[in-house]
């Protein structure tokens, strides 16, 4: 067991203002041109105040938080399981959170389990879930 590695209790917060320009760029990267992300009139007909960001785009910030905390351990041992609770609207600010839940030692692997997620500026849940790394 690696006893030298100190796990952070709380993970660094990543915050972003999600703009329509970012959402439009992400549409090109993901090849997802659903008008709910690009056309505010369509999005309003679907029941939103304006366009919404792709769920995977928001999820990127949890991965950025995990990379920031664990460097390449995240890219080599990370696991993530999340639910998308509510959409991120264009023009909305979001921030990530991550808090150590527990650790385990199974099959010669030290594992750390973190409660992770994203809230919007009003404290509303955007993404909730759990991330695991081996250390």
């Amino acid at each position: 067991m690696n006893t030298k590695y100190t796990l952070p209790q709380n993970l660094p917060v990543i915050d972003r203002l999600i703009t329509q320009s970012m959402i439009s760029d992400y549409s090109k990267v993901s090849n997802d041109f659903n008008p709910i992300h690009l056309d505010s009139t369509f999005a309003m007909k679907a029941g939103f105040d304006t366009t919404i960001a792709h769920g995977m785009m928001a999820l990127s910030y949890i991965s950025e938080m995990m990379t920031s905390a664990f460097d390449t351990k995240w890219a080599t041992t990370g696991k993530l399981k999340v639910k998308f609770r509510s959409p991120v609207l264009s023009g909305e600010s979001i921030e990530t959170y991550g808090e150590l839940l527990r650790t385990s030692h199974d099959d010669n692997l030290n594992k750390a389990f973190y409660k992770v997620g994203i809230n919007n500026k009003n404290g509303g849940l955007v993404i909730t879930g759990e991330a695991t790394i081996c250390y």
Binding site: I36, F42, T72, A75, K79, L80, K81, V82
Partner: peptide, 17 residues
């Protein structure tokens, strides 16, 4: 996918870089 499709859950395991 039909417009209005919702992505409600995602799991991912990163195995190797």
């Amino acid at each position: 996918l039909p417009h209005g499709t919702l992505h409600t859950g995602q799991e991912v395991e990163f195995i190797n870089p």
